[in-house]
Design a protein around this nucleic acid. Structure first.
Lengths: 122, 122
DNA sequence: GTCACATGCAACCAAACGTTGCAGGAGGAG
DNA sequence: CTCCTCCTGCAACGTTTGGTTGCATGTGAC
């Protein structure tokens, strides 16, 4: 097993890995929006936004529904909660490893210190 | 300001956004390694690993030092801690938004319920 | 009916991830 | 010392992905 950390969905990760998509999610968390309205608040074109909404929709982080002549997007709270959980999971796994490394480093330091004392005695 | 969430370094984030690099970090958290040794545990070639180590080195998550005829890489705890902090930051920001949305949805639900009662009375 | 606006589709460009192939330098066996 | 091995670094190339422009279509408003 390579699994140091809990199961992580690569699709979900790479979905939130893109900075534009992260900002898109931020905006959609404030309120629903369309490709056109969202592109007004981002430094990219409407088509780029549409593509991003497409991948967010594919992984289920967002849901688009046609309303009249426009298509409104809203975040899917459940799936986003899953994504957040995975972030926390990876974060805490790394954090735990870092703590362990720090503990070991300190132990080594202490060992060396007492060794130095030994050397001085001789 | 677009900052719903605390300052997030896109370079750092995209560094850990790649699944191969995440696994690389996992491996290096267990112990130091070289491009060759690490590639043995990943489904990609040595050269691909070397490139990834290059970008991890550039953003400071990892440090490579020449030792004899090989180049050993170790994680930089400080920078990785910064990255973990950013993960947590984004995660908790989204979490907070989700909670708020849920609260509002429940409030709307309650309002509608009492409206229904009103309707029945009339 | 016509005009305006939002969408969807296609072609194209650049950057990133991955591959193969090859040249070079450090260590160990003879 | 020489040869052989192994690890590294560089270059060329293909594919996927984020971004652009341009155009055709459909729906709403007047």
């Amino acid at each position: 097993m390579s699994a140091v950390l809990g199961a992580v969905d690569d699709d979900l990760w790479s979905a939130i890995g893109d900075p534009t998509r992260r900002r898109l999610l931020d905006l959609l968390l404030v309120g629903e929006g369309t490709a056109t309205s969202l592109s007004a608040e981002l430094p990219v074109t409407r088509q780029a936004v549409a593509k991003h909404l497409g991948v967010l929709d594919r992984v289920g982080l967002v849901r688009g529904t046609p309303e009249g002549r426009e298509r409104k997007y809203r975040v899917d709270g459940v799936q986003l909660a899953v994504a957040v959980a995975q972030l926390e999971s990876v974060g805490s796994a790394w954090d735990a490893r870092l703590r362990r490394i720090k503990r070991i480093a300190e132990a080594v330091q202490r060992a060396q210190d007492s060794q130095d004392v030994q050397d001085e005695k001789e």
